[in-house]
Nucleic acid binder design. Structure first.
Lengths: 188, 188
DNA sequence: AAGTATCTTTATCGTTCGCTAAAGAATATA
DNA sequence: TATATTCTTTAGCGAACGATAAAGATACTT
């Protein structure tokens, strides 16, 4: 989709999309605060001005990484919502999808939830909270479409949200997959 | 218990226990990384050298705050474990106790779990992880005493741990008490 | 009163942070 | 070839961080 225009000046010496993917992995593993501009530059083999020319700022780079993560995970969650046949089944499918996602590419948890909990930057927390809020609204709508009352849908979404936050934190705390699955089935 | 020795040199100009309580509240609300030495000094009405003379370092102060938190919460969790009549009841009692604790004195969540998720300092994370591990061992022992098999006790403790992490994170994310309670009862 | 021990204040130190001005290098167009 | 445009490098800025040396203040002990 990124139409390769003829390009005017000196071409960029690195792949911006690869760099974004690497940055996303670093932010997911270590968190926004713990990943420094120097770390990112070292990983991308680039000096700070190149990184700033390509992405604008550390925050902008993080937000691009969050967008990328959202696009990646949207398909999995969409399938879970589409396939659900009733509200309780929705909860099970969403949480199992989440756990699979959190354990993919190493035990990194959820980029959104982990940084919502961990980042000191208030503006970033607000942006992440808005994403979570959107997710919750989508789930509540689907739950109502599956027959839940508004109050039931709210409660269901709250339970899913708490469980997702717990799973993300537990994954990052090092809990192994078997224990996580045992925990999840106890919470369904 | 703190025997007031006659005191030798110039007396301290502030109450170290009050300062510790204030620091604990700050660490609980904002997290270890986000609370600076300057913030602590401003809150205690003290210059850095006084704070360092009294507590040693920012990390030492945090660890004292964690100890204090542990002593405060031990009674509540002890009651929950003591009163439990079977493993499932134990889970319910521990999680309800946790939620009450997390909402006391403002929506601060769990000092241990919140900082385990949020802090960039690896040594602090390790110390907090050890505390969590101890807690888990205690709960598993009590679950076995109430008739759970070793495997059942492990699964139960994993579920409790995931739920506690989720509750702490959800509290800190601003979820209201009613939603938290609805979520909790869906996860029991 | 003299001496000693402890705390408080002032004024930083050295490091790391995110970020950028200025100059050089590589591509396009004219 | 000349010029414009864009990226990269070198070098470093200003701010915030945790922490401290040195000097002054206040208590107890002798």
């Amino acid at each position: 989709m990124t139409t390769n225009k003829p390009a005017r000046g000196r071409p960029r010496g690195f792949d911006a999309e690869e760099g974004l993917a690497a940055a996303q992995a670093m932010f997911a593993r270590d968190g926004y605060d713990a990943v420094g501009v120097a770390d990112l530059c070292a990983r991308l083999g680039v000096k700070p001005p190149s990184l700033y020319a390509a992405y604008g700022s550390k925050r902008a780079l993080f937000e691009k990484a969050v967008s990328r993560y959202g696009a990646q995970s949207a398909a999995a969650y969409g399938t879970a919502l589409d396939d659900a046949v009733n509200p309780v089944d929705l909860k099970r499918r969403v949480l199992e999808t989440a756990l699979d996602l959190y354990l993919a590419d190493g035990p990194q948890g959820c980029l959104v939830l982990a940084n919502l909990s961990a980042t000191a930057d208030a503006e970033i927390r607000a942006a992440l909270a808005a994403i979570v809020s959107d997710r919750q609204a989508t789930m509540a709508g689907r739950a109502r479409a599956l027959g839940a009352s508004p109050a039931e849908a709210e409660a269901l979404v709250s339970a899913i949200s708490v469980a997702m936050m717990g799973l993300s934190a537990a994954v990052r705390a090092g809990m192994d997959r078997a224990s996580l699955q045992a925990a999840l089935h106890q919470l369904l």
